[in-house]
Design a binder for these strands. Structure first.
Lengths: 169, 169
DNA sequence: CCTTCTTCTTGCATTATGCAAGTACTTATT
DNA sequence: AATAAGTACTTGCATAATGCAAGAAGAAGG
């Protein structure tokens, strides 16, 4: 990046944000971490959207350099790296929930199971309407959980994704 | 788009949303309508981000076909068209406000005027914290206003943008 | 060792975006 | 009426971003 294009300059907040995560893949990666509990390169690769390896590497690198994601070596397997959200990355949770709500409202999907409303888990949407702040805190607090048994039903269903009748695309 | 790529299929809400406005320019256009009160092609062209004419035309066309924006001929000048947000487009306002809040928190900008916090108007941020729903309703209701004199201070300052000490980039 | 796992990198094809010029219609000016 | 200026685009070509397939390098497992 040339110095006169530095985005830490006087500019609109929308432009600032778009330069950091306004591409085709960054929010998909953040979704995988936030809602699917993913942490490894290979886990991101296995998502249904099929990001290619070079793009994934470059996005993870950018997200790390922007301070949204941290990268640490897995002490149990030195060829693996653990990607986690920083506080700056976790602060995107409200935004992600807004996207989910908007899509749930405007993406009519006939014939999906009862517990999924337009691609979003029903109880996640319900809790969004009831107590948004509580849900945000719960998801945020549970980010480091490795064992599903300690997770709430809301988070479990969110991580399960297309549970029930999964017709893939 | 091939039929098997139709985004109205069983898929995650994040992916659904990204296919509609997850590009470099859509949210910039929506920002101009929501916060700057812009409605004409030439007004979008004059934004500091300098979108090129072909991209602007194709994005407006896509936003219209996705139902976020409506296009009507200006009865006072038949060579002009008015672009407005539909309800589906207006429903992105909470998302836009979250982006603004995130950027305001994480985009440190030294030496900007007192009324601008990291690129966002101070009183907009204040009202976001105090009564978010009221602010959303106010901005939404005032979208059709042509005459600035009837707008609240919050909306006026938001539309003014880099008011005070505008160093451009 | 030798194979497999894991995280990338590299080279090349395809798609998206950027830039400059041109077109068609409408409005304003002379 | 003729000309110029305004407005919303389109078109052709250059550059940049993304997609795909293969390969490289260190770690783990047998």
């Amino acid at each position: 990046m040339k110095s006169h294009e530095n985005h830490y300059s006087s500019k609109c907040p929308i432009t600032f944000a778009l330069e950091i995560f306004g591409d085709k893949w960054s929010l998909v990666i953040l979704r995988d971490i936030l809602f699917k509990g993913k942490r490894y390169y290979s886990e991101f690769l296995s998502s249904p959207e099929k990001i290619s390896t070079n793009i994934l590497a470059s996005r993870l690198n950018k997200l790390e350099s922007e301070g949204l994601v941290s990268k640490t070596q897995d002490t149990k397997n030195l060829s693996k790296y653990i990607y986690r959200l920083t506080d700056k990355g976790k602060d995107l949770l409200p935004l992600m929930l807004d996207i989910i709500e908007w899509s749930a409202k405007h993406n009519p999907q006939p014939g999906t199971p009862d517990n999924i409303i337009n691609g979003a888990p029903r109880n996640l949407l319900a809790r969004l309407g009831e107590n948004r702040e509580e849900l945000i805190k719960e998801i945020s607090d549970n980010l480091e959980q490795k064992n599903d048994s300690r997770l709430s039903d809301t988070i479990k269903s969110a991580r399960a994704g297309k549970n029930g009748a999964g017709k893939r695309n």
